[in-house]
């Protein structure tokens, strides 16, 4: 059974939902970031799949979009991890259950 567009899109969707589950359910802030990176990877996979399989006059546009997503993911990972380290220095924890100063 040769893999068609639906197979790749299914893998992308499953990766995205797994990443969402990880981002919503982990206690450690770095774990949440890992879920977010998985979601971005799934989005990249979907973009490249569409660029490869669908009819369009400009198939390279999907690849340029992926380059920008890669860039933004790298920048966001750097800032998010710097934030996590800074919060750790102040609060001695990066447990998302206990970072609740904004509540009530």
């Amino acid at each position: 059974m040769t893999p068609g567009i639906e197979h790749f899109l299914t893998v992308g969707a499953l990766l995205f939902c797994l990443g969402l589950a990880i981002a919503l359910s982990k206690r450690n802030a770095v774990g949440v970031l890992m879920g977010v990176e998985l979601m971005l990877n799934a989005v990249n996979l979907t973009l490249i799949t569409f660029s490869r399989f669908t009819v369009s006059p400009n198939p390279i546009a999907g690849h340029t979009f992926v380059v920008f997503v890669l860039t933004v993911a790298a920048a966001e990972a750097a800032v998010a991890l710097a934030l996590a380290v800074a919060v750790y220095r102040n609060r001695e924890t990066i447990d998302v259950d206990r970072l609740n100063l904004l509540r009530s």
Binding site: S25, K26, N28, V30, Y88, T93, D97
Partner: peptide
Amino acid sequence: TPRASRDNGET
């Protein structure tokens, strides 16, 4: 972050 929880637990 050495003293954070490293057991990959859930919220």
